[in-house]
Amino acid sequence: MKFSAKTFVKKNINGWLFNLPLFIGLLVFTAIPMVMSLLYSFYETDGITAIPVGFANYIRIFTLHDSQLPRILLNTIIYTLISIPLNLVLSYLLAVLLNTKVKGLGIFRVVYYLPVIIPGVVAGLLWKDIYDNTYGIFNKILSFFGIAPQTWFSDAKTAMASLLLMNVWGIGGGMILWLSAFKNIPAQLYESAKLDGAGPIRRFLHITIPLSTPMIFFNVITSIIGTLQYNGTLTFAGRAGRGPDDSLYMYGVKIYNEAFVRSNVGYGSALSWVLLIVVGLITLVLFKTSKWVFYGEDS
């Protein structure tokens, strides 16, 4: 059939128009800023004045010439390595519990999900109060049981552990995703397994886990991306989100501080691109090693 531009436009115009707002949004708020930040990363710039510096910003990052970076990377790696498995496992176990027939199941699900709908800034301030050395509820509970009060966010030794504990509060978000994955597992599989004599643990190990691997995979990837970008400490940790003795200084906070506090847009952009590349590589490796993910018999 002969191609006619007029027919093509006439046939597709509605689709293009419906897509246009999204296209413009992506172009203006994602594509152009990304390209601009790539450009800025080769300049020493505050966004107003600019001096071309070639790869100097990247060299500064990769040679760890920035004396804050080793500590920031260590904090970010520790936070990522502990936070992701901890939250994934706990939210998974919580979802397994709430996938059983328990009285008041709906209430439990709502209660566990509630923290997720509280805005991050509010949650941060709330936890700042909860962790208050003198008036915080945690120390009051500890003193009720005769345990010495803890320093929480106010001491470098306890700040990271306090942050990890605080994040457990938000496992309801992961729980909902796991529950949705469990709902997609055909009930016949459990019934067949039961008839074959499989107990609850065996059914969990051989049906629930394998069939929820796509969701595990999805959660792992999104958690890694989110955790590496984490800058939530800006709202509650003090010292420009760095925490006592920089104990909570994460890579995401560093990007924010460089770009928006120190007006060091060029270096901040370079840090962002390095993060993007790292996240991309990790995601690539995860996809390349994703044979353990079970997408069904056809996969």
């Binding site: 790539l38 004045t49 600019a50």
Partner: peptide, 16 residues
């Protein structure tokens, strides 16, 4: 495309 687009965007002016 990204490279060319980068080149299209003029760098911010330097001023002292």
């Amino acid at each position: 495309s990204v490279f060319l687009l980068s080149g299209c965007i003029p760098p911010p002016p330097s001023s002292a």
